[in-house]
Design a protein around this nucleic acid. Sequence first.
DNA 1: ATATTCACG
DNA 2: ACGTACGTGAATATG
Length: 944
Amino acid sequence: MTKKLFLLDAMALIYRAYYALIRNPRLTSKGRNTNAQFGFTNTLFDLINKEKPTHLAVCFDTHAPTERHTDFSDYKANRQDAPEDLLESIPDIQRIIRGFNIPVVELDGYEADDVIGTVAWQAADKGYDVYMVTPDKDYGQLLIHPHVYIYKPPYMGNPEEILTAEKICSKWDIKRVEQVIDMLGLMGDSVDNIPGIAGIGEKTAAKLLKEYDTLENILENADSIKGALGEKIRNGREAAIMSKKLATIITNVPVEFHEEDYRLKEWNKDELVTCFTELEFKTLGKRILGDEFNAFHAAPQSIQTDLFGNTVISKTETPVKKEKNIAEEPTETAGLFAEKNITNTPHQYHLADTTESIQSLVSLLMQQKEICFDTETTGTDANNVSLVGLSFSIAPAEGYYIPCPPDDAATKNILAQFAPLFAKEDITWVGQNLKYDLLVLKWYGIEIKGELFDTMLAHYLIEPEGRRSMDLLSAQYLGYEPVPIEDLIGKKGKNQGNMRDVPIEKIKEYAAEDADITLQLKHAFVPLLQEKELDSVFEKVENPLVRVLTDMEFEGVKIDVDFLSQYSTELEKDAKRCEENVYEQAGVRFNLASPKQLGEVLFEKLKLDPKAKKTKTGQYATGEDVLLKLANQHKIVDDILNFRELTKLKSTYVDALPEMINPKTGRVHTSYAQAVAVTGRLSSNNPNLQNIPIRTERGREIRKAFIPREPGRLLLSADYSQIELRIVAAISGDPNMCEAFRLGKDIHTATAAKVYGIAESEVTKEQRYKAKSVNFGIIYGQGAFGLADNLGISRAEAKEIIENYKKEFPNIQRYMDDKINFAKEHGYVQTLAGRKRWLKDINSSNFTVRGYAERNAINSPIQGTAADMIKLAMISVHQEMKKKSWQSKMILQVHDELVFDAVPEEAEDLKKLIIHCMTTAMPLPNEVPVEAEVGQGQNWLEAH
DNA sequence: ATATTCACG
DNA sequence: ACGTACGTGAATATG
């Protein structure tokens, strides 16, 4: 039998594990992040199980600098500091490795790849098959040695992969694996900050190597290589030589492969048990250590009769959610380290597909106080789908599914049987993302009375930054994995199947389970909302907003297609002219829409500003800020900026919006995401109607295309005045700023007067502009550098302005300090309505990371309070409009603005109502007034 | 799939 | 020495 040696690149695997799980971190009950420990252990165990190595070692990098660092100061320079919880995981991982009785190999002055390379070759010499376990492609060069392979662990849904020399060669399109380092010398490696030759990527590098075989030979023949490529090579000579050296793995480091040390031995189980217990690896611990870790007992079975008189055999003990702790053992389903032994739960899911069975289901449901429901549809755009079925659940592990035929009329007949249920008022309807289901049903003419409880929104408040797919929530809070939707309709993409084509029996299992799980989630979330004191913001803000948004999305907004198509032609013409101007001035034709090509033209061909900013991938930055600074160097910049503006407007708005018109209504229906923005704001998508241009002349035109749904109607637009600054003033209680608002002053002028120590009448336009910039900067936690950059003034001047500002508005400074200190102490900040945002990095020792958290601590309560306020206003406006049965409709929300499609007879009363609701929705402390303005017109631009 | 750019508040 | 103002979504280029 051949001896199999596996050498693990520990840090690479740890990083990957950590980041693969970052969006849904595994946390212990004490809040420790154990992503890396979990991921590493999982990989290691799966590997041992599956590949049955005879010998194994784990290699680490040490902190000592290597020759690569001393020779080349930029080596790995753009690599970020590892997050703290990742670094803290390393001792645990080393303990686990000890528990498995596996040797750790590391050597000061060498990186793990050097150690692995050296040991791999020695072992292969002794007749081993050696597998280097790493995701890093650079190891390909080591495959010169026969019997040395790369073992890529499973990742992103891909299975593990054993890379041979042939596979490496075909992947890189080279002849011999030795050429891997020539490739890296030419193209570089952004991950390690190996520069390579500027402008040469994988394709060009492979082509060159085909012709010249080695990097050295390419450089020798550089003079005979024509055109831009030849020039690039000649210029990149030094960089290429250095890069190749950096990329070369050292295979003669002073380590020796002693076979016996590496042989797999008996585990130190006590150590493993201790460690897994501490890390709260329940399921994984059991998987690895079996009964020794945790006793397992199966539930007894019983025979029951279901609602329709069928005999059902099931486990009596339904595995409802575990005791309590929410974050105790989140189980990843989508990630690479899924604990696969968690399976379906015993359950009783019933099909109701006859008039009789539906009748008996309806009478059962009529007796309930709380019903969870879910719709299955043919797609994801609620405004454009047909109903495939409905599912209900009223108790854990129970569920009902009602299929609906493709025929609309027949589906309406089925739904008609539920009419008394939907009309019942003393029911709480539980669902995940109820807006979707309510909207689908609304298209069938159904309005559901009763209370709502949206589990997605509950989770949004409990964990604003988390992901909220059913799979993840179920795994995390209930401890088991539901049937993934992929099992029914396949993965997302153009070949995704249609729910309509899935066998009913299969949908039944899936749909009923969704309702079942959602109901269980509700019961997990209710105590959490209370514990975290989020019940009020849930009940008063998020949950009631569901109906408002449902109606807004249902209504949509009318778009003037003719106007846009005419405007499109105009933009096209103008853009073309700018584009031609650019090519003429540059002396070359290229793709102006490519930032990369543009950067090369500006900075290499035209030789503008030698010290140009680079992006993190080493390209020239060509963003607007960069271009504006170049404007005085070359006339071409103007045309580029114009081209950018025109093409942006055309592609993102003018051409895209008409495509989004719903054929049923002739209007555009955006979708508001209520559980995405971490601060509590809404976001809008498909299409995004919260970023319609207004700042430039040509952009603003687009607003003329947003019109009332019928001739004779009006658009109203109401917006808050300086709401975020008012909130800062109110929360901080700053006397000067509060006073300015109380007196109804122009806040930026008042600020300028204070900062410059002059009378308000003496404030110049420029001073007001600068003060405005400071006021906004404050909201975001901006420093002197940012202000200077923003205003194009010196850092000294910026610093002086900020210092004056802090002196004149002392409580603003105190507010910022208070928020940061509060966050440091409590781990979160909150809005006036009690919405919380947790800031895990607030005590980080990493300057950058902590700074980001600190700015969030300042900004989130402000942005979030403004979000709370307008949400409350929307709820009350909506409620009043409904009460009065008005025909006018609220149609859009843009963070501090509400837009209405109104009938003229109601317009005046409506305006009063809007202003009243907006200004009284959430009174601010310190008597800071809340003001809102409303305008009207024949389009959105006029209404402003 | 990721990076860059740019539209809004 | 580093990086430097918050929160979004969409289009495009490029890998």
